[in-house]
Design a binder for these strands. Structure first.
Lengths: 137, 137
DNA sequence: TTGAAAATGAAAACCGTTTTCAAATTCGGA
DNA sequence: TCCGAATTTGAAAACGGTTTTCATTTTCAA
């Protein structure tokens, strides 16, 4: 993870926070990160985590998700700059899967031609239930 | 608009609120409704609007949207219970269009078969820019 | 008309997030 | 290595939207 202009100096706190975040494969809240770092014996403030998370979101490293009940959670993102991409968001466990397929491309073309709507391919979200949660229930 | 079990009595306030809401073709906030009703000379409290909006959301009459900056807005919804349906959400003006096409159905089938993901067709959201906003800019 | 149930709304509480600001830290250059 | 300007930190206060509280008012069936 590299720092942008707002991340000029390296500090113990930033290193701990960014390291923990880059290990996350599921959505997490600011409080989750805080609690885990405190549990590990780190000494830092909630405010610092808010700042680092904002900067990583700004830099495109995190996706910010606000659910219907107002809870704010973040997802650590790999780079997905190509076309034909969408997100599959599981409403049970909160996992965000990336999926690529030509059908997404077809759909966005169609929506542009027939509905006059220019889709942002980084913002296509299909909500539902993931394989794991289907099997567990 | 009809009331559910939490809407036992008819009142002046509920009638004003539900009438104004059912006229809305765009996203609105609780504050928007409050301001407009006060402007029209109605006498009621913010709290009451929060309660009516919650109940209408519960009843499926409203979609609640929380944007990345935390702002909560609602959209009055027509019934859309059939398959092959998705929402086109304009990130400029906030309008939510409904679109129906067989490609949505194809995509959800594919996602189920190939990615093991069961999509909720009432929750497919394609973010982007609508025709009107494209032409205005 | 009456009264039990429901609804109202002002004020207080709530809670996640942002701002403030004095103190501590970082790190390039002397 | 030391200095000092720029940056970062975090406790506390402020903030703002939403929910809760609770005394009062309203509704409507009997």
């Amino acid at each position: 993870m590299h720092y942008n202009k707002y991340m000029t100096y390296n500090t113990r706190q930033k290193n701990s926070i960014t390291e923990l975040i880059s290990e996350q494969s599921q959505e997490f809240s600011v409080k989750d990160i805080y609690n885990e770092l405190i549990r590990r014996g780190e000494d830092l403030g909630l405010t610092t985590i808010y700042r680092v998370v904002d900067e990583l979101t700004e830099a495109g490293k995190l996706r910010k998700n606000v659910s219907a009940d107002g809870a704010v959670r973040y997802q650590y993102l790999a780079d997905c700059n190509h076309l034909g991409h969408c997100y599959l968001k599981c409403q049970h466990c909160g996992r965000l899967k990336h999926a690529d397929c030509h059908l997404v491309r077809q759909l966005t073309d169609h929506v542009r031609d027939e509905h006059g709507f220019q889709a942002d391919e980084k913002q296509i979200i299909i909500n539902g239930t993931c394989e794991r949660c289907i099997n567990e229930n």
